[in-house]
Amino acid sequence: MDDSGIIKLYWERSEDAIQATDAKYGKLCRYIAGNILNNSQDTEECVNDTYHAVWNAIPSKRPSVFSAFIGKIARNHALKKLEYISAAKRNPDAVTSLSELEECVSGRDSVESELETKRIERALTEFLWNQDRDKRIIFVRRYWHFESITTISKMFGYSESKVTSMLHQTRQKLRTYLESEGIEI
């Protein structure tokens, strides 16, 4: 079933929508959540939460890129779940990925308005589009999908040290860019 068909089922409030979503995107959701949670039971719960959230979101939303839509929801749910899981159980890759991002920020608590949030997200998007394709994809795979350096290096055929170096450079650039945009980091 194509995406529009699935979305139509949601709009019709047909429970088949969940089944169709699971058939098509279950694997994607489990992959994203699994990268973050590293636990099959937690991952499964997260995927179920994701379906529930999609059910509540459609209608009224009508996502045009359904894979990204559901992927984002799965990612957000997994990150929330991660907060509640003890440090011992945490997925080292996800935790490491988050700690790497500390290079880009001050670590201070900050309260952002909705406007500021939008601005930061736009800045991030613009920044990434201005990077080389490889660096851009590596950044997204690492910090959006929480993939390990090993996985990414295999994906690109690069050495792990090269991927690590590329990520480091991108993070430095990102920090500079955010500062230049007047975004409080």
Binding site: S67, A68, R75, N76, L98, L128, R136, R141
Partner: peptide, 24 residues
């Protein structure tokens, strides 16, 4: 800003960036 917050922002980047990375 904390890294977790930045990560949340990264979670909301342009869909096309995610799509590109998925395709690759």
């Amino acid at each position: 800003m904390k890294s977790t917050v930045l990560s949340q922002h990264i979670g909301n980047i342009d869909d096309r960036l995610i799509q590109e990375a998925d395709v690759f």
